[in-house]
Design a binder for these strands. Sequence first.
DNA 1: CCGAGAGGGGCAATCGTTTGCCATTGTTTG
DNA 2: CAAACAATGGCAAACGATTGCCCCTCTCGG
Lengths: 338, 338
Amino acid sequence: MADHASGLGGRPTLADVAAETGFAISTVSRALSKPERVNARTRERIEAAAKQLGYTANTTARALTSGRTRSVAVLVSDVTNPFYFGIIRGTQQELKTAGYTQLLVDTEESDDLEDAMLRRLRASYDGAIIAASRLTDRRLAELAAQMPLVAINRQTRGVPNVFIDTPAGVDQAVEHLVSHGHRAIAYASGPPTSWPSERRWRAFTKAAGRWDVEVSRVGPFSPRQIQGAAAADAVLNTRATACLAFNDLLAIGMLARFAERGVRVPEDMSVVGCDDIFGADFCHPPLTTITAPITQAGRAAVSLLLAQLDRDGEPVRRTITLPTHLTIRASSGAASTA
Amino acid sequence: MADHASGLGGRPTLADVAAETGFAISTVSRALSKPERVNARTRERIEAAAKQLGYTANTTARALTSGRTRSVAVLVSDVTNPFYFGIIRGTQQELKTAGYTQLLVDTEESDDLEDAMLRRLRASYDGAIIAASRLTDRRLAELAAQMPLVAINRQTRGVPNVFIDTPAGVDQAVEHLVSHGHRAIAYASGPPTSWPSERRWRAFTKAAGRWDVEVSRVGPFSPRQIQGAAAADAVLNTRATACLAFNDLLAIGMLARFAERGVRVPEDMSVVGCDDIFGADFCHPPLTTITAPITQAGRAAVSLLLAQLDRDGEPVRRTITLPTHLTIRASSGAASTA
DNA sequence: CCGAGAGGGGCAATCGTTTGCCATTGTTTG
DNA sequence: CAAACAATGGCAAACGATTGCCCCTCTCGG
């Protein structure tokens, strides 16, 4: 092993502090972690020596006995998807204030990889937050029984979760489009294994039924900007004058394709996205979208997980639902009367 | 501790496999990690038992003796800055194929936080990649002496690094603007502690001198979109007909502000960014920018770090320089003749 | 003046692996 | 045929911290 720390012996350990002060290792340990357990003067001397030596506890060794690593894994299906920035930032903030460390894992939209990572991490992390699970309900529940888990935007029996109520926003979006005279709307769906995509579709058909709007569904599409081209083309094959995209990434890609094909937005086609990610406000035209409290979702997930950890891993059977709202920008407008 | 794993005793350990097969713990350990050290038949029996029991090594315990955790920290100054997506994705990919785990840390543009995190992580991570250090040269070098470190876009004696040659791109950008008749160009600078911002400014003044162009500098600005408004206003106070922004985030923010103030881009003002981040191609107008091989930079950083790790932490005194190129889009054009 | 109890400190086991070193066995070589 | 050797397996000591348990020494009350 590299002797990177200093000329002799690397980082100081409890033993070094003990030798320095003349106390036993156990006393030093207690002085540092259970201050009430030792004499005040003893503690002072030990603390001074620890500081002078630059002692910091070895988290690995600590984890070995305590079984707790004070670190949590956050799984996202694609680190480059801006939707997750907010999640990541939210979890990071909240975990840090609680003294936890965050491990970020990209599961690359693969259920196998997600499963494998979770199994591997189980040993060395106190718990995990899964931002967009591609796992089956069954597998997710199994894993949740083995380690503290919180899911975001995924409701499965036995798995605490944070739910962003985009379906409610879908209602608003449909209402908005109807009020602008749209009678046929298309839904560009996300990946087949995406739970929120299905939920949005259900909310969409339900709302459409209420307003007697003709619906069509295209897809599935991978939630990436590049897929927007295919989605846009597919929508143009329907009679829809407006469309709702599974998420903003897809919507932004569609915008680009529409421009390429000379389809004017919103004159010829209204486009509504979901999430209100980075870029939704400065794309062209700026995107009407269902704004989700993304950062807050990350924070909520952490609080749920920490609550579970405090209760010794006993799952907190609970869902936190976060409201959304429709943000109207320039990509949606009156239906073409053609 | 929660007994989350099973009814009895939690996860299987080497001892369990040893008991099951009748071999000693050490033999089991070797069978699993140094297969050539044991008899083939022994290894088979042990592997079978391990598989059947569902044994997986406890990484914490392993790290304790070996001193190697097979995990690496990646520090970025702001997770929500799209510039880092590529970095993160690059490091993630490369680390995963090497069997390493990646810890993502957001240092929030704070040198103190960066320092503290590095110190804390030193113990439990094999090394770190710093994507945009806010540390002083001195401090960075000190830390590099204590743990394997690789910096991205930061050249400091004694610290292996990956350098994205944006300064060379700045040359091209100035040339491009000059060829369009611009005689006065402004630079909107990044944070005062940003090393690349200074480098870009130097390259900028040098190129400007070569072409006898009048330069001005505005800022410093925090590299966030919202700061673009202030930057745009500041540029309008100069005689510049074109500007180069420290990065795309700032440039995109400037675009929005120019639009707000009725300044036409590129007719009244040409704008050039740096990096070519997500969004640079679909903002309005699409941004001319110096395209950086971001993902590749992440990968290169990992390879440098891994090389260092293989050599027992002995620093590899080396810089990897990655070329950039100018990507011309619609935000730059002929200088107004007004 | 003695015994109980509290306060403060130390010993040693423990967590699960890795690894240096030794013991055993069977095989090769001079 | 003896000596040297390779192959294989086991013992036990780390790694650095935590923690149950015991011991010593005061202090105080009866």
